[in-house]
Design a protein around this nucleic acid. Structure first.
Length: 752
DNA sequence: AGCACGCCGACT
DNA sequence: GTCGGCGTGCTC
């Protein structure tokens, strides 16, 4: 019998076998999308393999083939997705879905399937909205309806989709509320994003500096070689000309008739980079970003698939772009944590970029001013070739980095300890010299916590049990930074009804306000996720460049982007905030952050000044950032991790356990940890791996509908052992209790 | 994951 | 009386 083994978008490891009816035999190939009857549903899957074979006891025929001429997935992409699925132990069908285009309406209609016309198919251009009315309820509403009504009243008009994410039966409850006249429903157009629509003026390729030229040369040679596969670690500070190397590498790939993918951390934050690509290649670049409508996304997908476009640029998910004859993948700012997908299929785009390029016999370039330890390790073990771009040829003085030891500082003139006297004076001096200041603070909002002064209770998120952040702008609201829950600032403590609520801590909003008062003659602006959506980042940076702003306060965002030539003072309000994160990479991240933020000071002829405020001035990340000593920090951190058995010398596997009852979650976790320990010992060649139980994960619990979430973590230096152990644990987890959900997360990767 | 089937509580 | 909550089992 002719069988097709199909990957379907269900969370199961195996493929499903279908009979290929004679009428579809000619069109059913590896990589084609097919319509399958699956239980009572009809699903679109991808043919992984097809051929003559022994049918399983139960076989259904394929209903239809969606791809008319070519398979949706090339052999290259298909093979890569299978590898990814194997690597992360992720369900093959869900992995395939990452690379599939949105289903075309026309095809869907031709298939006479109402499924595609409704919610799950193409998301319409309109979203359904729910808004509160003036009317008050006659009697108290119980359960979800009451909660939903309170929420809608707190946040104002919201989308039904959003409500459905928070409450299971929101649709039914909203219907009921609408009947009672307590809310109104409607729909609104999803605004199309015309961010990248404006035409880009073309540039002329500049002369390469000698280091750039030799980097390009090395990359071009690798691209031209028959054996292909090569990885480069491109180390160069902002402004050293990494982008130009990328552009030339793409040209070199083109000369070999090969396509390219460029991955950037968050495309909305890097409009300058996109502009550079468009200036060089015009509209021959597919820019993939979250603002694309399904229709536009499909158009981009098709143009890449047909080979009309040969360059794709985008965030994480652009890794799956259907670029033909892939020859090059660039990962810009490769150290950036946003390359790690933390929801659904957990993959690391940087690692998978190496894998995809390698399998396609192509070149992978990992570029950064502060290479990740993983990439550094690849280079030290000769699995990647390091290319260095020294700081710009023009002699530019390194900024003077100074430490402000907060242990020895009283409050500055503002009365706020976080604006210490040295920082205050430095700001004054910078303003007097008519230069600009950037202040980095890793906390958005006004106050990170609101506490009752009578009973000590913190205002916390009902579903995430983390402190709610007070946002002054947009109506004095409390917001949960994990799940985006929102409520008005209450008048009284929820527990003891006392009106004495105190705003604790310092966020960017408050810092902005304090500075505006302390320096009334200066123009103060803020840049963080709350003010920045897409274009506004560019607007703020533009105003900064035009010197319409004197002091810019911001989060991570101020560390990204390009030249701000008149900034001569950079202040880090609290370096310890980044160091004390519960993450073994905290020191590395803090170091990256400090180096990147310090790099913003003193462009041009004026030497810059960097002030780092900290309670732990002796911390290695701070000491080495102070000396700009990347190598010393790397040595130390690598040695540290080697000792701890941490990556990159070992791999980490995580099993997530979710259950609505905390005790059950803990119990299941402990049981799984035992299974893991046993399995690890049985599988170990070099002694057992480490097993640890992590507490409630700092993840959007609300989205799990208030389930408790624990994680069993395994560490091992042996990947085969780790895999075997994780599989054993996953099997055990499934048999424990159905309601325990597991997710496996292997991180990071040593692929080569 | 969906989606059926099946069994218990508060509403027309 | 039944609508709708969620437990359990299956999907080629």
């Amino acid at each position: 019998m002719l069988l097709a083994h199909v990957a379907l978008p269900v969370p199961m490891a195996h493929t499903f076998s279908y009979e290929i009816p004679a009428r579809l035999a000619g069109r059913t190939r590896q990589g084609t999308r097919v319509l399958c009857s699956f239980g009572s549903r009809r699903l679109v899957g991808v043919v992984v393999t097809a051929g003559e074979g022994e049918p399983p006891p139960k076989v259904k025929p394929l209903l239809d083939v969606l791809d008319t001429d070519e398979p949706a997935l090339t052999d290259e992409l298909l093979a890569f997705l299978r590898d990814l699925s194997g690597y992360y132990l992720a369900p093959i069908g869900e992995v395939m879905r990452l690379a599939l285009p949105p289903i075309e309406r026309a095809v869907a209609r031709a298939l006479e399937d109402s499924l595609f016309e409704t919610k799950k198919g193409i998301s319409a251009r309109r979203v359904q909205t729910v808004a509160p009315t003036e009317k008050l309820e006659e009697s108290a509403l119980g359960g979800q309806a009451g909660a939903i009504l309170a929420h809608v009243r707190a946040v104002g008009e919201t989308s039904l989709v959003d409500l459905e994410n928070r409450w299971k039966s929101a649709r039914a409850a909203v219907k009921k509320l609408a009947q009672l006249g307590l809310v109104t429903t409607g729909s609104r157009e999803v605004q199309a994003d015309s961010f990248f629509a404006s035409p880009a003026p073309r540039d002329t390729p500049p002369e390469l500096t000698p280091p750039q030229a030799s980097a390009v040369e090395a990359i071009a040679t690798a691209l031209a070689s028959t054996s292909g596969a090569a990885t480069f670690a491109l180390h160069g500070v902002t402004g050293s000309g990494k982008t130009e190397v990328y552009l030339r590498a793409i040209v070199a790939a083109r000369q070999q008739k090969k396509g390219s993918i460029v991955l950037v951390p968050e495309i909305a934050l890097t409009p300058q980079l996109v502009a550079r690509f468009r200036a060089r290649f015009g509209d021959d670049v597919a820019v993939l970003h979250s603002g694309l409508l399904p229709r536009e996304r499909l158009v981009m997908w098709k143009r890449l698939r047909t080979g009309e476009l040969d360059v794709a640029i985008g965030a994480r998910s652009a890794l799956f772009a259907p670029v033909r004859d892939l020859g090059l993948i660039v990962v810009d700012e490769e150290h950036d944590p946003s390359f790690k997908q933390e929801e659904g299929i957990r993959y690391h785009a940087r690692d998978m970029a190496i894998l995809r390029a390698h399998r396609a016999a192509g070149v992978c370039i990992l570029g950064s001013a502060t290479l990740s330890l993983e990439t550094e390790h690849l280079s030290r073990t000769n699995k990647a070739t390091k290319l260095v771009l020294p700081d710009r040829a023009r002699a530019q003085p390194m900024p003077a980095v100074e430490i402000v030891d907060l242990r020895r500082m009283g409050p500055g003139p503002t009365g706020d300890k976080r604006i210490s006297l040295p920082l205050h004076r430095a700001i004054e001096r910078t303003l007097a010299a008519r230069e600009q200041v950037i202040l980095f603070l890793n906390r958005r909002g006004f106050s990170p916590a609101v506490r009752c002064e009578a009973c000590g209770e913190l205002c916390s998120c009902p579903s995430c049990s983390v402190a709610l952040t007070f946002h002054k702008r947009h109506g004095e609201r409390l917001r949960c930074h994990y799940c985006d829950f929102e409520t008005l600032l209450p008048d009284n403590c929820a527990k003891c009804k006392s009106p004495a609520l105190a705003l604790e801590g310092l966020g960017t909003e408050k810092l902005e306000e304090t500075l505006a008062t302390a320096f009334p003659e200066a123009k103060v602006a803020r840049l963080d996720r709350d003010v920045a959506s897409g274009r506004t980042v560019d607007t703020v940076l533009g105003r900064m460049r035009a010197r319409e702003i004197d002091i810019l306060v911001g989060t991570q965002m101020v560390t990204k982007g390009h030249d701000l030539p008149h900034v001569t003072l950079v202040g880090v309000i609290n370096a310890d905030a980044a160091l004390s994160l519960p993450d073994f990479r905290a020191a590395e991240r803090a170091f990256h952050l400090l180096v990147q933020v310090a790099g913003r000071a003193g462009r041009g002829d004026v030497p810059g000044r960097v002030l780092i405020q900290t309670y732990t001035p002796e911390h290695p990340a701070i000491v080495h950032a102070l000396r700009h000593d990347v190598n010393a920090f790397l040595e130390l951190e690598l040695a540290d991790r080697r000792e701890l058995g941490y990556p990159p010398f070992s791999r980490v596997g995580l099993i997530r356990v979710d259950h609505p009852d905390e005790a059950t979650a803990r119990e299941a976790c402990a049981m799984l940890a035992n299974v893991a320990r046993d399995a690890a010992e049985a599988a170990a060649r070099e002694g057992p791996g480490r097993v640890a139980i992590l507490g409630p994960a700092p993840a959007p619990l609300a989205r799990l509908r208030q389930r408790f979430r624990f994680r069993v973590m395994l560490r091992s230096s042996d990947r085969a052992m780790l895999r075997q152990t994780l599989l054993a644990v996953a099997r055990a987890a499934r048999s424990v209790e159905r309601t325990v959900r597991t997710a496996i997360d292997i991180d990071p990767v040593q692929l080569l």
